[in-house]
């Protein structure tokens, strides 16, 4: 079943981020224009250093832009965004349950309501039995699931995900991708998912934004034609999927070659 699409819509105009240091300045992001629809699963793909993580951090309020505007339409949502990081970012000194509860505690959600939501989130990611475990006692996959539960439990208008599965082994990655897509299909939240893997982006997202490196600009936006609900395993084995992946790889390859040529100059 697919939930109605809800969540924040986003309008980014002329976004620019410049880092100034003693050695001069580096433009991490330049002139990024992007509209994100409410409830959309948007993936951002690009090589290392294309500013995709910086973009996400700005959206999360962890960094500020040098120029441009971001408008978030998140009416009716108490929490605007919650971020899931590549390294789970679970607090090692809290057990799973306390970690998941963290965003509710800071948000001042009443105890009974918090209990109910934590319970539901643990069930959602299949960690009820591990609620009293500390992060170091969990596998990488379980840690990321806890991190996802911690984000979901705050019921944010959008989820910002920064290569959350990059550090996992292949099997676990597929399992978690499948679970995330299922969660998204059930909740219809806006998801902005940063990855360096084209395959991952096409498997999960509605649209894929390709970015170029140094400075980070939007090269192309691809509408991913595969309908939801998706069976990721089946999809990844299909001919259409392979063809689309190849197309995009061509675009990216050109970009990588150009960047390399510039470096050698």
């Amino acid at each position: 079943m697919i939930a109605p699409r809800r969540g924040a819509a986003l309008e980014i105009k002329g976004l620019r981020k410049e880092y100034v240091s003693g050695q001069g300045s580096v433009v991490a992001i330049d002139n990024v224009d992007l509209r994100v629809e409410a409830g959309e699963f948007l993936c951002i793909v690009g090589p290392s250093g294309c500013g995709k993580s910086t973009l996400l951090r700005i959206l999360a309020g962890l960094d500020t832009q040098t120029g441009g505007t971001i408008k978030v339409h998140a009416e009716g949502w108490a929490v605007e965004n919650a971020m899931v990081f590549q390294e789970s970012g679970l607090f090692p000194w809290m057990d799973v349950e306390t970690n998941v509860r963290f965003g509710l505690e800071t948000g001042g959600v009443p105890r009974a309501e918090a209990d109910r939501r934590v319970e539901a989130a643990l069930k959602l990611v299949g960690l009820v039995r591990f609620r009293k475990h500390y992060p170091h006692q969990l596998s990488g996959g379980m840690r990321q699931r806890s991190a996802i539960a911690r984000a979901f439990v705050t019921e944010p208008a959008m989820l910002l995900m920064d290569e959350p599965f990059a550090a996992l082994d292949a099997q676990n990655r597929v399992i978690l991708q499948t679970e995330l897509v299922r969660l998204w299909e059930q909740t219809g939240k806006t998801v902005i998912y940063v990855t360096h893997s084209i395959e991952e982006a096409l498997l999960m997202g509605d649209r894929t934004v390709l970015m170029t490196a140094q400075p980070g600009r939007i090269k192309r936006i691809i509408d991913v034609p595969f309908p939801h609900p998706r069976d990721l395993m089946k999809l990844s084995a299909s001919a259409e999927f392979g063809a689309l992946k190849l197309d995009i790889w061509r675009v990216l390859e050109e970009e990588v070659m150009r960047a390399r040529a510039e470096m050698e100059l």
Partner: peptide, 25 residues
């Protein structure tokens, strides 16, 4: 740094930062 980022992302107040993050960290 990531623990500060997470706490900030969840809107932790100075007092929560102090009691839940800095002290235990």
């Amino acid at each position: 740094k990531i623990y500060w980022d997470v706490a900030r992302n969840y809107g932790a107040s100075q007092s929560v930062m102090f009691r839940r993050i800095v002290f235990f960290g």
